[in-house]
């Protein structure tokens, strides 16, 4: 109830939220594929590969936090923990695996 009231008093613009989420999603997908290329070229295997991905995503989130959200995630995201830090992890993972497999195969043989 209190949250509903809070939302009525200080409303959240749906469009802006979606725009921000889309931007985060795009950034993640792009950087994930690049990380995949790096992981494949380095010849990383299972565990180190995934760790590389998580580590890279963390760095990217930090960069978004510092440069795009200007250190004030509450202004840009309704629930920054879910939207900014754990943004579009699954989609990013898929791109990562795709490019990782491709370059791993290219380099290995």
């Amino acid at each position: 109830m209190a949250e509903e009231r809070e939302l009525q008093i200080h409303p959240i613009m749906q469009e802006s939220m979606q725009h921000n989420a889309r931007i985060v999603s795009n950034i993640r997908a792009l950087t994930a594929s690049l990380f995949g290329v790096a992981a494949g070229t380095l010849g990383l295997e299972s565990f180190p590969g995934f760790l590389f991905y998580l580590f890279g995503t963390l760095i990217i989130s930090l960069l978004i936090y510092a440069f795009r959200a200007e250190g004030k995630p509450n202004m840009y995201f309704y629930k920054p923990l879910a939207d900014l830090w754990m943004g579009d992890l699954f989609g990013g993972l898929m791109s990562f695996v795709l490019t990782w497999t491709l370059f791993y195969g290219l380099v290995k043989a």
Partner: peptide, 13 residues
């Protein structure tokens, strides 16, 4: 299968 899942961000672009 890999491309089926992984190309979604590419479609978005």
């Amino acid at each position: 299968f890999l491309t089926l899942f992984g190309l979604q961000p590419v479609y978005n672009f």
